[in-house]
């Protein structure tokens, strides 16, 4: 019987890790393709309403965001505030914001610029109406009411 048992002690060969970088690079590229860069830190509460008719915003680079909601920092109260870029703003600073957003884009793309209103669902329409009126005044007419797409069960 001893014929089949080898006398030398067999050691487990070292696991080859040479393909590990390839695997990690694959994951990395997957992430680079699927995700979008976070543009600004959101300072206001963002509970999006759901809607079945929501359409995907097609060209990410042609979208500027206006955030509206009550501040996350409780010290600032619960009154709904507007956030442009990285800071709180008032309705009066929207024309300036739109102008700078237009400035940042190619001349050909300026007409396609969409303003995405990211508004918390508990916000009252008053402030939204003011923002919309201001957008009308500066001719930024394409808007999108940001909402989470809900699958409808017909």
């Amino acid at each position: 019987m001893s014929k089949f048992i080898s006398k030398e002690k067999k050691e487990v060969p070292a696991l080859s890790t040479s393909s590990l970088p390839d695997i990690v690079f694959m994951i990395l590229f997957f992430f680079m393709v699927t995700v979008t860069m976070r543009e600004s830190t959101v300072l206001v509460k963002q509970g999006m309403p759901t809607a079945s008719e929501a359409q995907k915003l097609e060209k990410k680079s042609l979208v500027s965001f206006i955030y509206i909601g009550s501040p996350l920092d409780a010290k600032l109260g619960t009154e709904a505030r507007i956030q442009l870029n990285d800071q709180f703003a008032t309705v009066a600073s929207i024309p300036e914001f739109i102008a700078s957003e237009r400035e940042a884009r190619d001349e050909v793309d300026r007409k396609q610029l969409t303003t995405s209103l990211k508004v918390d669902q508990n916000v009252k329409m008053g402030i939204v109406v003011d923002v919309k009126q201001e957008l009308r005044q500066c001719n930024a007419l394409k808007i999108s009411y940001s909402s989470i797409k809900k699958k409808e069960g017909n």
Binding site: V24, L28, T36, K56
Partner: peptide
């Protein structure tokens, strides 16, 4: 090196797809 880059992307990016109801405002 690849891991460091991967972690960097995980932190700086968001996965959520932006969607919304598209509307056109009337001109002024």
């Amino acid at each position: 090196i690849a891991f460091i880059m991967l972690i960097f992307f995980l932190i700086t990016s968001t996965m959520d797809v932006d969607s919304g109801i598209m509307r056109r405002l009337p001109p002024p």
